[in-house]
Amino acid sequence: MSTAGQRVKEVRKRRGLSQRELADASGVSLSTIRKLEQGERATARLETLRKLAHALRVPTMRLAGEPNPEDASAETVDRWTAVREALERPPLAPGLDDEPPTVSGVRAALRETEPLFSGDQFAALSVMLPPLLRDAEALGPEGRRVRVRLLQLAGWLMVQTRQFKAAETALERALDDAADRLEGAATVNTLCWLLLRQGELGKAYDLAVKWADETEPRMSRATPTELSTWGWMLLRVSAAAVRNSQPGEAEDALKFATAAAVALGREHAPENDFLRTFGPTTVKLKAAENAGVIDRPDMVLRLAERIPFSGLKPTSNNRNRHLLDVADAYVKTGDYAESFGKLQQINADSPEWLPNQRYARDILGRVISGRRTLTVEMRTMANVVGLPL
């Protein structure tokens, strides 16, 4: 496997640049480039690689290291070893001529990396995230805001990929650094989801209720961000309650979330944060999810018909989960072809997301048990979701 220095050297020569010319074009010191290319340093800060990549006119991923395509759909703990280590260990001490990371540089690198999160590009994130986490940690107090945002995203990713301990580490650190209740609530939103996925329903409910109370705005003058934040806390209350056999509390929380969504009148993403997008469509998606939890497939399908699905991105935070709820409803009503079709749709849009969903494995298991023969497509899907045949 080539090192970052070898990749820099390869692209630099292809561009016909000397080390000095690359240093002048990128703003990276000649000494750093030489040490990278000579193998004296195995890697570089992501901010440094980003500067070199811009000067060389290639994506930062080209220098950081492309993910192994054979691992692209594998559900594996080993993929996230470097991310866990970056979360749990202090940042590396800089070398004598290392240029320290800057807040603006790390913020720019994070901005370039965010589409990988919203697009469920897990293999690429396993490469990009460790150096970015180390750079953000090395910023010190002045980098608090960008570090909190990165830790929120890292925590969400670790929940998605069932790295629950690493998720807890990232989210607790983000919460400790939160500057105000709205920033803290953005982290608690994912913390509640983590507790739900771990089956800690009582803890999730209590935490969501506490933060719903703390973030409840005065409706007459609430900002869109306040409504979005409060609405998400209410959705977490409802999700925990419906799973914990508290239907009254679940319904009440969903009604208040609906009121917040109506006040917004549209889907709103505070600071363009896809994790916090909230509005009427989000509430409908979660209402359908609740219907699935209480085993009402008829209601799931009825609600699904009212959701403006065309406006949702294929890899948006709630869309794929909704498709799984619809697939589950179809299999419960005996429509195995429609159920399997939804799984195929998710896999086509989000091939790295689906293998991490045990829910998908359960649905496919019921599809297969209800069919007399297995098609080639079903065997392929079983391999994708890790269902033994």
Rank of each mutant, 00 (worst) to 15 (best):
R50N: 14
R361M: 12
V385N: 09
R243N: 14
E40F: 11
N290Y: 04
K9C: 00
P247V: 04
A260W: 02
R218Y: 01
R361V: 10
A55W: 05
V77W: 09
S126F: 00
A288D: 04
E70Q: 14
A240R: 05
T373G: 00
A82R: 15
D177Q: 15
R302T: 11
P217Q: 01
L389H: 05
A260Q: 07
Q6R: 12
F122I: 11
L22R: 08
P59V: 07
A269V: 02
E226W: 06
A93S: 15
S238V: 09
V11G: 03
D71W: 06
L343R: 08
Q160M: 09
L133M: 07
I346K: 04
E251Q: 12
P100D: 13
A136F: 01
L374C: 11
T281C: 01
D97K: 05
R372M: 08
A212T: 06
V242T: 12
E226P: 03
R57M: 13
V127C: 11
A327Q: 01
V242N: 03
E88R: 06
D349E: 14
L301M: 12
A4Q: 13
T43A: 14
D98L: 07
R149G: 13
T3Q: 08
T48C: 03
L312I: 06
L151H: 09
E85F: 06
M1L: 09
G155C: 05
R173V: 03
V106A: 02
A64F: 05
E37Y: 08
E137H: 10
R218T: 07
E251W: 05
M233Y: 03
T169L: 12
G370E: 07
A124W: 02
Y336V: 04
R173K: 15
H268W: 13
L324I: 00
L227R: 00
R14M: 13
R266G: 02
T102K: 04
E112P: 09
A382V: 06
L22A: 02
R89D: 13
R276Y: 06
S73R: 15
T380I: 07
L139F: 02
E37Q: 11
R236S: 04
G27H: 03
R134T: 12
G386N: 12
E216P: 00
D328W: 01
V331A: 06
A42F: 03
L191S: 10
L227E: 11
G155N: 05
M381L: 14
R134M: 10
P351R: 01
R319A: 14
P67V: 03
T76D: 14
Q121V: 02
S26L: 04
A382D: 10
S310N: 15
L17M: 14
V103N: 05
A72Q: 08
R371A: 04
A186I: 08
R319G: 08
L52S: 07
P91W: 08
A186T: 10
L63S: 03
A222F: 01
A186K: 12
R379F: 03
R371I: 00
L175F: 10
E183L: 07
S245E: 15
T113V: 11
G341K: 13
K203M: 11
L285A: 03
E112R: 15
A291N: 10
W232I: 05
A170W: 06
D177E: 15
M378H: 02
S310V: 12
A241W: 02
L227T: 08
R221W: 07
A288F: 05
E267C: 01
A250P: 00
D135A: 05
